[in-house]
Each structure stands twice: as C-alpha cells, then as structure tokens.
C-alpha cells in the first residue's frame, strides 16, 4: 500500500509564516507613515487631498470583490466543481487587471501634474507633502507589485485546476494562492483610508 505523504497543515503554516514577513514589510512602512504624519500633520493633510478618493474607493470595491471570488473558487474546487472554480479564478484575474489599469491612470495623472519624487514642482512643496508622496508611491507601488505576483500565482492555480493537479482532494496550492491574494486585499484595506480618506 503506497501512502503518499501530504502535510497540508505544514504547507499552510509555511504560507502563513511568509505572510507574516510580508505584514512586517508593509508594517514598517505604516510605522514610518504614522511617525511622519504625527510630525507633519498639515503637510499630510494637504497632500492627501490631492489624491482622488473616487479612484481609491473604486479600487477598494474591486479588490474586495476579487477576494470574495478567489474564496468562492476554493469552495467550488472543494465541492468538485472545477469548471465553476476556473470561472471564479478568471473573474479574480480580470478584477486584478482592472485594479492595475486604474492604478496606471491614477499614477499617470500624478505624473502629468509633475507630482513625482524629484520633480521641480515636488521640490517646491513642504517637507510633509514630499514625505507623503514618497510614501504614497512606495506603498502603493509595493502593493501593486504584490498584485502582479498574485495574478501570476492565480494563473498557475488556474492551470493546476484545469489539468486536475488541484482537485477536491488536493487543493492546498489554490488555498495558499488564495491566502496570498487575501493578504493583498488585507493590506489595501489599511492603505485605502490612510492614503485617500483621511485628508
């Protein structure tokens, strides 16, 4: 009798420990944000007012929905409905791409206004504004990089579900990809009010 060793709890724990390192990577930036915000309250207020709260809200809705669809794809796989799972993964990827398109236009608009680190207009702003925009680009940029990595993981999951490597008995790869995607959503949940809302 062959007994395949399969430690799903261990695999999931490895993913969680990796997620903790990611939380501290962003956590450090949140800490920098908090300290500078306390020191340069006025500058942060006026700089945050330049961000488009509508685009931020739209991207929040998109990411929350994509987080739900990836969770639903896991439910579908567990119920043995791989076809439905594939559809949910596709919807998740489309939402992720919509997020990136929004981000592209948002950053593009800022660049048109010459609001980027090192520009002449930026250098004439106060310290608080410069720090805010530096953190804005750093944090949303790092977050966008995670969105791209998440899309790659979701695409790999898609093919694994399609060829049956991920199925109703073995779905840890999709679960861990899902965890990564929820992490992207989790970080955005805190980025959104701090960057766009609290002006």
């Amino acid at each position: 009798m062959s007994h395949e060793f399969n430690d799903d709890v261990g695999k999931k724990m490895g993913m969680w420990i990796f997620i903790f390192t990611e939380l501290f990577l962003f956590g450090g930036l949140f800490l920098v944000y908090a300290v500078f915000r306390a020191n340069y309250t006025e500058g942060f207020h006026s700089a945050a007012a330049d961000l488009d709260a509508f685009v931020g809200t739209l991207n929040t809705v998109i990411l929350l929905a994509s987080s739900a669809t990836v969770a639903m794809s896991i439910t579908a796989v567990q119920k043995g409905n791989n076809k439905l799972a594939l559809r949910f993964i596709i919807v998740t990827v489309i939402l992720a791409l919509a997020f990136m398109v929004n981000k592209y236009f948002e950053w593009g608009h800022k660049f048109d206004l010459k609001l980027y680190p090192g520009s002449e207009i930026m250098e004439q702003l106060g310290k608080g504004e410069i720090l805010f925009f530096g953190l804005y680009y750093m944090m949303t940029g790092l977050h966008a990089l995670h969105v791209i990595i998440g899309v790659v993981l979701l695409m790999i999951s898609y093919f694994k579900v399609k060829n049956g490597t991920v199925n109703s008995q073995k779905f840890i790869f999709l679960e861990n990809s899902g965890l990564y995607w929820h992490l992207v959503d989790f970080i955005w949940i805190f980025l959104f009010p701090l960057m766009y809302l609290v002006t």
Partner: peptide, 27 residues
C-alpha cells in the same frame, strides 16, 4: 473611525476569507 472600520474589515477578511475561523486553532 476610518481605522476602526478598516480593522473590522481586516478581521472579516482574516476570519472568513482566509478561513481562520475553521482552520486549526494554531493559525
């Protein structure tokens, strides 16, 4: 208020989407 609401949203994502409610307590 914005941070409080964000924390509740984060809690919901961790508990239900990330399945912590039903996984082993160690997580």
């Amino acid at each position: 208020v914005a941070l409080l609401l964000a924390s509740i949203k984060g809690y919901l994502v961790l508990t239900y989407f990330m399945h912590l409610k039903y996984d082993e307590p160690i997580f």
